[in-house]
Each structure stands twice: as C-alpha cells, then as structure tokens.
C-alpha cells in the first residue's frame, strides 16, 4: 500500500513545489525595488524614455500596465503554452535566451557535480583511511579553508593565477569568438580550454563540502564490523577502500550531492559572472540588474527545474548504488 501511494504523494508534492515555484519566481522580481523599463534607459548614452505616451505604450507592450493578478494570469497562461515571455532588457524571447545560456550552465554544473563527487569519493576515502597523517591533515585543512572561500573569490584567484600571471588558459567566455576551427575536435578543445577554470572553481568549491562529509562518513564506516571482515577475507587494500568502505559511504555522499545541486547552481551563477561564462548565471545577474521580470521569471523557473531534475537523477543513482534507499 505504502509503496503504491508513494508516487502519488511525491507527484502531489512535486506539483505543490512547482506551483510554489511559479508563484515565487513571479513575485520575487516584483518585490525588488526598481523599474523594469529602466532597462531601456541608458545612463551611458543618456538615452531614456522621456515621452510619457511612449512609456505607456511600452508598458502595455509588455503587459506591465495591468494589475498584478492579470499579469500573473498572463504569465501562467504563457507558461501553459510554453511561452516564457519576452525580455525587456535583452529584447529577445526568454525561451531563446534560456536556450542559449542553459547549455553552458549544464556543461559547467554537470561535470562539476560528477567530478566533485568522484574526487570527494576518492579523496574522502583516502583521507579517512590515513586519518591523522600528513596527507589527511593537508587535505582537511586545505579543503576546510577552501570551503570558507566564496566561489567568486576562488574564481578570481584562479583567473589571476592561470589566465593573467601564467596565461595558459583563456580569461573568460565559453569559446574563442569567431574562431574558425579546422575540425570539430579543435572546436571542442577550444570549448574545453574555456571550461577548465570555471569548472575547476566550481568543482573545488563543491569538493570542499563533499570531501568533508565523505571523510566523516568513511571514518565512521572504518570501525564497522564489515570492514574488519573485509580485511579478514584477505581482500586487497584498494578493494576494501573503494568497494567496501566506499560503497557504505556512497549513499550519504549521493544524498549530499542531491543537496548540493542547488548550491552548484548557485555557485555556477557566481563562477560564471567572474569568467564571463555565458551561462544562466550571466543571464540571471544581468536580469537582476535590469529588473528584467520576464527573464527573471523564466530563468529562475528553468534553473529550479534543472535543479529538481538533477536531484531526480541523483536520486535514481542512489537507488542504483544502494537498493536500501528505495525503501526508505
């Protein structure tokens, strides 16, 4: 019975979450002080909408002259038909903007999550195994310190180190603009080179948290009876570390990864800002600066959906590695 009810309950919960999300992304931007039409004003060139009649027309064009409930109805109606609206500041369809920015964020977030999970898994086990020794202490102090550093600071440090002082990697962007690559492989290498620093930043940042958790879990696991039996069975060290200790710690790690997805998205936003990486972060930060309601609504919604989706993937992965999690 319980098993059968579960999907219904979780579906209802997901539905509620979505509804709350939709309301939130509508309300939050409007709670910010500022005028969305200010995005059309240009302090640099001194261009501004000075004609009140034009102002009214533009407001009407974006539906911002209507009372909030009607704006909300319009927004939800748009969502229902897959229309995310039109960006005021970028003068472009929000869905198009999201389509242009989201892949880069996925390219950053996905590998960062995978790499940080893998790195934390391995490092956490090794550190726990050699707890108290120099390597463990270095990792512990280093990653604890790393955790205290905000992503954008870390990003800036890496940027200065590897793009300015030692200019081996590009400073920003996701590709060399207008470069003509001889082959698809070269184009991919170019994308890769641009990805290195942002990915390293986000991965390090995520690893710091996950590593500490993994080390903690594994330290607890090391004293478990089954670890003693594994040794008694004469199993090789690596097998005991990465299969026996690791497998026990994998579920807590994956659970933590699930929780980290939101942080990864948030971290990606800041990291993208530093590296001028054209992902959702750049889109969002600019939309916040410009009070671009449609973009804020659409981008936040999509990003939240991505977080939910990745969470779902992590959940599936957790069930795969440990059937017990399906029951609990």
């Amino acid at each position: 019975m319980a098993e059968r009810r579960r999907p219904a309950v979780s579906a209802a919960l997901s539905g509620l979450t979505l509804a709350a999300l939709v309301v939130l992304v509508f309300a939050l931007p409007r709670a910010l002080p500022g005028d969305p039409l200010a995005a059309l004003d240009d302090p640099t060139s001194g261009v501004a909408i000075t004609d009140p009649e034009l102002r009214e027309r533009v407001l009407a064009h974006y539906g911002l002259d209507q009372p909030l409930p009607e704006q909300f109805a319009g927004y939800v109606g748009g969502l229902a038909t897959g229309d995310l609206g039109w960006s005021i500041a970028r003068n472009a369809p929000v869905s198009g903007l999201v389509a242009a920015h989201l892949p880069w964020t996925l390219l950053l977030m996905g590998p960062a999550l995978l790499l940080s999970t893998a790195a934390s898994y391995v490092l956490g086990i090794l550190a726990a195994w050699h707890r108290g020794r120099t390597g463990d202490r270095v990792a512990l102090v280093g990653l604890t310190a790393l955790r205290a550093i905000p992503e954008y600071v870390l990003a800036t440090l890496l940027l200065i180190a590897f793009a300015v002082l030692l200019p081996v990697l590009p400073v920003g962007g996701a590709r060399t603009p207008f470069a003509e690559h001889g082959s698809g492989l070269a184009a991919l290498a170019d994308v890769g080179a641009h990805l290195v620093l942002p990915l390293a930043t986000l991965t390090l940042s995520l690893t710091a948290t996950l590593f500490l958790l993994q080390r903690h879990t594994v330290v607890a696991v090391l004293g478990a009876d089954h670890m003693l039996l594994a040794e008694a069975k004469g199993l090789p060290l690596r097998r005991r570390q990465f299969v026996h200790a690791g497998r026990s710690a994998l579920l807590p790690l994956l659970t933590a990864v699930g929780l980290q997805v939101a942080f990864a998205a948030q971290g990606a936003v800041f990291v993208e800002a530093v590296f001028a990486y054209p992902g959702m972060g750049s889109l969002l930060l600019e939309a916040v600066a410009a009070r671009d309601y449609p973009v804020l609504e659409g981008a936040f919604l999509v990003l939240a959906l991505v977080v939910l989706a990745v969470n779902l993937l992590v959940d599936l992965a957790a069930r795969w590695v440990d059937p017990r999690s399906a029951a609990s």
């Binding site: 910010l32 002080p33 500022g34 005028d35 200010a38 240009d42 001194g46 261009v47």
Partner: peptide
C-alpha cells in the same frame, strides 16, 4: 544603492540630494 534601485529612485524623485550620471550633456 544597487543600480536598478538607484535609477528608479532617481526617476521617481525619491531623494533630496542625488548623484546621477548620464551621457546626454
């Protein structure tokens, strides 16, 4: 204040003294 906020206050006159930058001079 954050630029969008400052611009909006400047537009609405919600200040006594304000430093405003613009390029149409």
């Amino acid at each position: 204040r954050d630029p969008a906020d400052a611009d909006e206050r400047a537009r609405a006159g919600e200040y006594a003294l304000a430093l405003i930058g613009y390029g149409d001079v």
